[in-house]
Design a protein around this nucleic acid. Sequence first.
DNA 1: AAAATAGTTAAGTGTTGACTTAACTAATTT
DNA 2: AAATTAGTTAAGTCAACACTTAACTATTTT
Lengths: 114, 114
Amino acid sequence: MPNQSTSLDLTFQALADPARRKMLERLSRGPAAVSELALPLTMSLPAVLQHLTVLETAGLVTSAKTGRVRTCQIAGPALAEALGWLDARRAEWEARFDRLEAYLNELKEGDSNG
Amino acid sequence: MPNQSTSLDLTFQALADPARRKMLERLSRGPAAVSELALPLTMSLPAVLQHLTVLETAGLVTSAKTGRVRTCQIAGPALAEALGWLDARRAEWEARFDRLEAYLNELKEGDSNG
DNA sequence: AAAATAGTTAAGTGTTGACTTAACTAATTT
DNA sequence: AAATTAGTTAAGTCAACACTTAACTATTTT
């Protein structure tokens, strides 16, 4: 059975690793070379490259090579999609919470009137 | 070496699975029993239980048993933490974008004045 | 041209993850 | 009390992950 991952699968999976989140934190402040992303990480360069591939496959990062330097950039859409999913859950959760609150207020008013 | 996962690791990891996201989508509309969460999923009940454990460990869901029924609820804070991290990245990304835009506008104005 | 820099590929290892089936417990219903 | 329902535990399998080292390719710099 092929493992057909959706876009959100790949995005959240990519976000689940602390090394990859550090890379994104750096990139959200501006473009950077691979070795710059590697600096704060205590792992080999090939490992960093593998993390970069995961980020690119998820669409969270794009990169291009100039000379011998590969410059990486954060990409908006994948980030926005993940944010959108989470925000939809929060919205539903809050709507439910608000309805409950309104109901409780109604109960309280009815109580003081009866 | 113990694998000390942070809260965000666990949260994003939990969100990376489509079955778990479906469970959360259901729960964001209101509490539900385990078997109700299992309904739309094409897997065994034990598998659903394992997913539920992952969600609870990540703090995304709480549950309590009454009689023979376990009722599950979505939990706000873990969701908010994940949202917060993503939103911080977007904010930084947008701030940079805005600065770039302002700079380009400045260039354009300078161009028409010189 | 030689040495250093920046990145890349391949291959192997140990750990987690996502299931499964089988067997079981504890509440309800009939 | 017997059958059903709802959930749980244990154990095993197979694939995916997160690395590693070794060896290699391009591009600069000296």
